[in-house]
Design a protein around this nucleic acid. Sequence first.
DNA 1: GACGCAATTATACGGTCTTATAATTTCCTT
DNA 2: AAGGAAATTATAAGACCGTATAATTGCGTC
Lengths: 213, 213
Amino acid sequence: MAKPQATKKPRAQFRRATPDERSRQLGEATIRCIRKKGNAGVSARQIAAEAGVTQGLITHYFGEVNELVAYAFNLMADDILDAIVAAAHAGPATPQGRLDAYIEASFSPAIFDQDVLRVWVVFWGLILHSPRMSMSQQKEYSSFVATIETLLSDLAAAEGFAIRDTRLAAVAFNALLDGLWLAWCLNPAAFQPEEGAALCQQWVEGLRRGAYA
Amino acid sequence: MAKPQATKKPRAQFRRATPDERSRQLGEATIRCIRKKGNAGVSARQIAAEAGVTQGLITHYFGEVNELVAYAFNLMADDILDAIVAAAHAGPATPQGRLDAYIEASFSPAIFDQDVLRVWVVFWGLILHSPRMSMSQQKEYSSFVATIETLLSDLAAAEGFAIRDTRLAAVAFNALLDGLWLAWCLNPAAFQPEEGAALCQQWVEGLRRGAYA
DNA sequence: GACGCAATTATACGGTCTTATAATTTCCTT
DNA sequence: AAGGAAATTATAAGACCGTATAATTGCGTC
């Protein structure tokens, strides 16, 4: 038996890409891996395979896997906030209309989605263990609360009711949204998305009636 | 150099235990491992070492690690619910008093604790991937909501205000609690625990004022 | 069109993981 | 006090993982 000319093994062809292209490609592959397998999907090998490249690229661009995951977190959080804010601005140009649109967008299938929570739970786990991730989270959280704060404050001004501490009210509203999202994703039988949206509206009704004054 | 009499290696002594003892011992070791390292702490080797036994016992009693983790989840969830319910019953024997005590207990350092969330995040991740864990979660969730539902319904009866759907109101209240817990643990600078409790009280005030009628 | 640098692939090493299996010990029963 | 079933330990096999290093190739530049 002779294996004559195969002295050198063939090597895969590849295409060079810019750092931005590769980073985003790897970041999106990371999110897809986590969507599919949760924590079990976070591995340099799997992510590289999902992106169609070799593991070395992760080391090359991010040094270690955690750094790539942190990048993916920012990518996804920004996308979600952008989508919700865009939805809010696309609604009727009144404080009430924008807040309604914000709520509606939060309960839309793109976000009220088990797969999305699956990704988020992995991020939470990392935030609790990595100062690097924690810093990113604080930034993203502030953006969410600030956005809600503006919506609530505009509504209060338009309708003439008082809120003692708008920032805290926004914290509560955001917590209610996240809590409903979490509960529904873990157990979709607990309530209907529309019921969740109604509960948010009722929270706002409490605000109107001076419960937070 | 001679190693004369050591033909047979010594074997560790051990004590037989009842299935209940061992299960609980392993379950508690599991929780300690997760508290310390999150997902990274979920491994048969580490848990067995933490419990001071060998890995074989986990296979012997639980078959696979996931089954042990599900057991640990039930253990911890029951403990927490019991603690909060006990606190509620220890408060003044009025609807208002019990609800206040429930809120206060929820924001106590034993629960409003990063380490506790760290454990919970791991459980959430598993719930989203394992039907077995999901069933446990649904049971625990129902217990929490039912408890709150009773508290709210008693309060409404005592004070004479209306709630259209008490179950949904309880879902919202629970979501608010979980959302605040999550936000604070991920970012303790976001607000003070007392501020969180106040936000819950204000939610109840909205209930009183008929926002959920 | 050849050159050379950086992007990318390929490969190897040491470690931990899960599960399975065999050997040993405890303790209940008689 | 002896015997035996079940609990427990010990060990091994095979897979994956993260990181480091060397080899190759794409592609801008001269």
